[in-house]
């Protein structure tokens, strides 16, 4: 499971960074989204990987921490998802505005002469 998660994070982050460095605004926004997925998975991994362990205290079970997954990273991810969702939406608007104002989807607002 660790190797799958690590590969997943690696592939997402790698493609995210590659797209982020591309000259089209749409590629940049997809890159940022992929990167934020990778980071969210990374936060989850930082809370140690557990299977079949609930994060919330179940009725009738003891409060022994060993039985439970760490709930904090999950809360952090939730916050991070909300924030990155909002900022991505905002970025999308700016992207459209830039497209409308400059007439091109190049990040610098002008095609490179070549």
């Amino acid at each position: 499971m660790e190797i799958i998660l690590a590969l997943g994070i690696g592939v997402l982050a790698g493609s995210g960074v590659w797209l982020l460095l591309r000259p089209r605004t749409f590629q940049v926004i997809i890159g940022l989204t992929l990167l934020s997925y990778a980071v969210n998975l990374f936060i989850l991994a930082m809370g140690r990987l557990r299977t079949g362990a609930p994060a919330i205290l179940a009725a009738g079970r003891s409060g022994e921490p060993a039985h439970y997954a760490d709930p904090l990273p999950q809360a952090l991810i939730l916050t991070a998802i909300v924030i990155s969702f909002a900022t991505t939406a905002l970025f999308l608007v700016v992207l459209l505005a830039a497209r409308g104002l400059t007439g091109t989807d190049h990040v610098d607002g002008a095609e490179r002469e070549s």
């Binding site: 940022l32 990167l35 970025f91 104002l101 610098d108």
Partner: peptide, 21 residues
């Protein structure tokens, strides 16, 4: 402003992801 804002937002979003890591 939109042009500079685009760069500003992209860079700060990337930095925020570093912050999270």
């Amino acid at each position: 402003r939109v042009q500079a804002g685009l760069h500003y937002i992209a860079i700060n979003l990337a930095a925020s992801l570093l912050f999270l890591i």
